[in-house]
Simulated scan of single mutants.
Amino acid sequence: MPLTRITVRDGWSDADLQILSDTLHEVLVAEFNVPPDDRFQVIESLAAPRFIYDRHYLSGGRSERYVLLNIVAGKPRSAEQKRATYRVLSERLQQRLNLDPHDLMIIIQQTKLGDWSFSGGKMFEL
């Protein structure tokens, strides 16, 4: 049950954003143990002055095509699942969108199940 906020600078085409979204979901299903119908994403496209980042901090260099993915997950994932998600997503975005791997930053935040209410004003419980 992750919720992913996808942030990019203005200039991405709708077609490329769809590829980004679809590829992210495909990798989350395959590597992050997300059910196929569990897809919640917010895509933000911001003007350059509203998306500020250091081009070189812990990176080989970021460009105007920098993509920030903030994944909020409701159950723990292993270090290996996270590593595979980072690696496979980077590889596929490079193949499908020619996205330089240095232009991809992924943050995973962990929550507890009771931190979610999917609808009806009810706390999520197993």
Results as ranks from 00 to 15, higher is better:
T4N: 06
T4S: 08
R5C: 12
R5V: 12
R5K: 13
I6C: 02
T7Q: 07
V8P: 00
V8T: 10
R9C: 07
R9H: 11
D10L: 10
D10F: 04
S13W: 02
D14Y: 03
D14A: 12
D14C: 09
D16V: 04
Q18G: 12
I19M: 01
L20M: 07
H25S: 01
L28W: 00
V29H: 00
V29Q: 02
A30K: 01
E31D: 13
N33A: 14
V34D: 04
P36G: 09
D38V: 11
R39C: 09
R39Y: 01
F40R: 10
F40H: 11
V42A: 15
V42G: 09
E44Q: 14
S45F: 04
A47V: 09
A47R: 13
P49Q: 12
P49E: 06
D54Q: 10
H56C: 12
L58Q: 11
L58V: 10
G60A: 11
G61L: 02
R62M: 06
R65I: 04
Y66S: 00
V67N: 02
V67K: 04
L68R: 07
N70S: 11
I71T: 06
G74S: 10
P76Y: 07
P76M: 12
R77P: 04
Q81L: 05
Q81Y: 02
Y86I: 05
R87I: 13
R87T: 14
V88C: 10
S90K: 09
S90C: 09
E91A: 15
E91N: 15
R96V: 07
H102V: 06
D103L: 03
I106Q: 01
I106W: 00
T111K: 14
T111M: 08
K112A: 15
L113W: 10
D115R: 05
D115T: 07
F118C: 07
G121P: 01
M123W: 08
E125T: 15
E125N: 10
L126I: 13
L126P: 15
